[in-house]
């Protein structure tokens, strides 16, 4: 339950941690675009992306293992996508024929490509959440969404919902743990039986959790009202986001990465033409 590495903030005082959240969010999006720009089987582009992740991790003073762990969280999804590629790609030279399924060299290559692509995306995204506190993240998103105000999108409310959700995740995890233990003590069994039985066994956990969430929401609403909350009208903000030289360097690096990826794509084309 507690092993949710993905999305957990790793507090440190580093170059990356000190960057403006907005720039980090934009840079992460740019990085992900970069990963998707890598054309099929141009693995050198991936190598560039990986190098970028590595450099960022080192400058962020985050243990690389922490970053890698994020992949574990979505392992199932990665493997599933790879298997689909492997089994349902009938192009290319057949390597293994199991009569109902053919495994081809192209399928294999595709599977590998997908694995690397998803992994790189996840690594980048987890670097963002590891180096940016939930509050900064919410503030950053709010600030980036600011233009949407003009089409009457409730930006402030949206950001507040996000930050409160983040604030309550640990509280609710604790609560879940407590309820599970209480029901176990009453003989509940969460570990045996088929999937339906297990799903049914979760009801005594989910209902108390739901009820307590409503109760908490109610109390929180009162506490916010009592502190004069009345929406975004006439509200000031204590935290001000400032762009610094770090953000400039970060931006340049990401831009460099994208140029690099595009160049490497073409490099391959040039290489094939030359051969």
């Amino acid at each position: 339950m507690k092993d949710v590495t993905f999305g957990q903030y790793y507090p440190k005082d580093s170059f990356v941690h000190r960057m403006d959240a907005r720039i980090k969010i934009l840079a992460s999006i740019a990085y992900i675009v970069g990963v998707f720009l890598v054309q099929s089987f141009h693995f050198l582009g991936f190598a560039a992306c990986f190098l970028f992740v590595l450099i960022t991790t080192i400058t962020a003073k985050v243990p690389f293992l922490k970053v890698l762990k994020s992949i574990k969280a979505i392992m199932f999804f990665i493997i599933l996508s790879a298997i689909l590629q492997l089994f349902f790609n009938s192009d290319g030279e057949v390597l293994l024929d199991l009569s109902f399924i053919k495994i081809t060299d192209l399928g294999l290559l595709n599977a590998a490509f997908i694995i690397v692509r998803i992994s790189l995306v996840v690594l980048g995204a987890s670097l963002l959440t590891l180096t940016t506190s939930p509050v900064e993240l919410a503030d950053g998103i709010e600030s980036l969404l600011y233009p949407l105000k003009f089409i009457k999108f409730p930006v402030h409310e949206f950001a507040l919902i996000m930050s409160i959700a983040l604030r309550f995740i640990p509280t609710l995890l604790d609560e879940t743990d407590r309820i599970i233990k209480a029901q176990k003590a009453r003989g509940a069994d969460f570990e045996s039986g088929n999937i339906f039985k297990r799903a049914k066994a979760l009801i005594p956990v989910l209902i108390p959790l739901l009820i307590s969430s409503f109760r908490r929401a109610d109390e929180l609403a009162d506490a916010m009202d009592a502190r004069c909350y009345s929406g975004s009208k006439n509200r000031t903000k204590y935290k001000k986001m400032k762009l610094t030289w770090r953000d400039l360097i970060g931006t340049i690096l990401v831009a460099g990465l994208i140029v690099g990826v595009v160049y490497l794509n073409n490099f391959y084309v040039l290489l094939t033409v030359a051969l």
Partner: peptide
């Protein structure tokens, strides 16, 4: 546990109390 009322879940008091017994 502390605040044991937070573990109630069933539709009726009877069902909730019987939960442990049935398990």
């Amino acid at each position: 546990f502390q605040y044991p009322e937070h573990q109630l879940f069933a539709e009726t008091v009877f069902e909730d109390v019987a939960f442990g017994l049935k398990n």
